[in-house]
Amino acid sequence: MNGRERVLALARGEPTDRLAVMPVVMMFCAEQIGVHYGRYVEDHRVLAEAQVRTAQAFDFDIVSNMSDPAREAADCGARVEFFEDQPAAIVESDALLADKAKLASLRMPDPLGGGRMQSAVESLRLMKERVGGDKALMGWVEGPYAEGADLRGINRIMLDLYDDPGFVHELSDFVVELALRYARAQVDAGADIIGIGDAAASLIGPQFYDEFVWPYEKRLVEGIQAMGAVVRLHICGTTSPIVASMGRLGCEIVDLDHLTGMDAAREAMGPDQVLLGNIDPVGALRDSTPEAVTAAIDRCHRQAGERYVVGAGCEVPRDTPPENVRAMVDYARSALC
């Protein structure tokens, strides 16, 4: 099986020849081809080149166009700061929806309208040309609460939960529609998988998550699946209080951050959920040794059981020793499913 066949078989619940390996790699890829991260963020050709070369060199099963959280927000008109060698970031102090009244007149951006979303779509097209048959192509969207935070400001949207719940629902309607349009453009460009990153969702506790986030994530997941793509959900941070709800979303792959135990996730989500992760990207991967990486991944695998994909808990840090990353891949190659 090649990487694409392996990932798609896994998502369909079919047997695979070995474990799949799908780490989140962005800055690590830029480092591998010797470019500053600012170029990776801003030039889709550089992103595609870095992804393809790194995935081939390390034998990852996927390539991805994710780079920073600010693509959709930028195309909505949010002020975004670009750095020479860091991810692009939204300027919260000048958030687009600092004034809530602006939501009513906010224009839904066209993902193919020449902005940052289109750049990410173009990178998928390039990657499809290069490795489309061999690697699974993964597009990316911001999850509903994360994108709401990007537009409104994360501090404000936390207080909105108490001050103006109706606004949070209205904003969530808008951002789910935006995410579905962006996902559609990426699927049309060849994405096999759409990742949903909803980092801010781990900060609000289970009651708010169930009321203000889960219904919108569910709508997004079902919409992407209706396009024929596989869904990978990643929520950064401590997800233990919401992990059972995450399991009810019906995502093909749940990618766990390292702060949630794989054993607890398995117990909460049942035997069929594919779980991905989740070694500590800093302590257990970057600042580690190949032997210790192997042991850490083995622990995750044993806790997760058969329905498991090798990866770190979050992005692989850019200065991770390549031999440690290879140890992850070697584990996937050698371990029995």
Partner: peptide, 11 residues
């Protein structure tokens, strides 16, 4: 202790 979350802290 995980009894309250960020919104409660900010409030």
């Amino acid at each position: 202790a995980g009894e309250v979350y960020i919104p409660e802290m900010l409030m």
